[in-house]
Simulated assay, not measured.
Amino acid sequence: MPRTRPRVPYPLRSIAPPLLAALLLAGCSSAPDAPSAAPPRDVAGAAAPSTGQRAGAADSGTRAGSRSTAAAPVRVGIPSLGIDSELMRLGLNQDGTVEVPPAEKGMTAGWYTGGATPGEPGAAVIIGHNDTRYGRAVFHDLRRIAKGADITVRDEHGAKLHFTVTATESVAKKAFPTRKVYGATRTSTLRLITCDGAFDAQGHPVDNLIVYADRS
């Protein structure tokens, strides 16, 4: 599932300033089970923060070496779109790319554990497929979300947190706004990420759809 590591304009470990070093992209290339003339359906993809970002408070909202006091999220819902999904935990692949839910679990979104925990100051990131080779996936209709829409996140203790959509953005993967998505925030914020846009020659969606939301 991981995409080929980008070259120019994102040479690994050579981006200045250092805060943007070692950017990597997660997979968006789930191929069909059999050869097809049609482009393969997409899966979610997002730029991973650098190692330095993951280690400190700047992007996770939690001090290095400290423990999160918030309960882990287990479910996400968007009532206006009829979305209600369990949340699996996502980390990093061996090559440093952000994990995505496996294609066969396309209707399940995932929480990136390297970011903030929903409810704590910082950016909590939830990633979901748009479509996979198995068909429609959990964030298939995410592009229809409206500003002001309610997003709910339920934690492992049953508490429900509410977030209000403030903006959406479709961006080229080659220009993924890493600081804006993973950067430090004083308040509790949420980002939802899926694939968007046209396919390239290899059948990979070229854009990401990002939904920004603040704690209600």
Score class of each variant (00 low, 15 high):
Arg133Trp: 11
Val206Thr: 15
Thr4Val: 09
Ala16Pro: 05
Tyr134Glu: 07
Ala103Asn: 06
Pro17Phe: 04
Arg5Pro: 03
Met107Lys: 13
Leu24Cys: 02
Thr152Met: 14
Ser66Glu: 13
Tyr212Gln: 11
Arg186Gln: 14
Ala57Leu: 13
Lys180Ser: 13
Leu190Ala: 02
Ala167Pro: 04
Tyr10Val: 02
Thr117Met: 14
Arg7Gly: 12
Leu12Ala: 11
Ser29Gly: 15
Ile145Gln: 13
Pro79Leu: 07
Val206Lys: 15
Leu19Met: 06
Glu120Asn: 07
Ile83Gln: 03
Gln94Asn: 12
Ala103Ser: 12
Ala64Val: 03
Phe163Met: 05
Ser216Arg: 08
Lys180Gln: 13
Asp131Pro: 03
Ala109Trp: 07
Arg144Cys: 00
Arg144Met: 15
Pro18Trp: 04
Ile145Asp: 08
Ser85Pro: 07
Gly45Met: 01
Ala47Ile: 09
Ser60Cys: 01
Gln53Phe: 07
Ser60Lys: 02
Pro49Val: 00
Ala22Gly: 08
Ser80Cys: 10
Thr97Tyr: 00
Thr164Ser: 14
Ser188Ile: 08
Arg133Thr: 09
Val211Lys: 01
Arg136Phe: 06
Ser60Glu: 02
Thr166Leu: 06
Asp214Gly: 03
Thr187Ser: 14
Gln53Ser: 11
Lys160Asp: 12
Asn93Asp: 14
Phe199Val: 05
Leu209Gly: 05
Met88Ile: 12
Phe199Lys: 03
His204Cys: 13
Pro121Phe: 09
Arg54Asp: 04
Gly183Ala: 03
Arg191Ala: 00
Ala34Asp: 09
Asp150Pro: 00
Ser68Phe: 03
Ile127Arg: 11
Val8Arg: 01
His129Gln: 07
Val206Ile: 14
Gln53Ile: 00
Ala16Met: 11
Pro177Glu: 08
Phe139Gly: 10
Gly27Gln: 04
Gly114Val: 02
Val76Cys: 13
Val125Trp: 03
Ala184Thr: 02
Ser170Ile: 10
Leu20Asp: 09
Ser50Glu: 00
Glu156His: 07
Ala58Phe: 04
Ala46Arg: 05
Arg144Phe: 14
Val43Tyr: 01
Ala44Trp: 09
Asp155Asn: 15
Ile15Trp: 09
Gly122Pro: 06
Lys105Gly: 02
Pro6Arg: 09
Pro11Met: 09
Ala198Lys: 15
Tyr134Ile: 05
Arg63Lys: 10
Asp196Met: 03
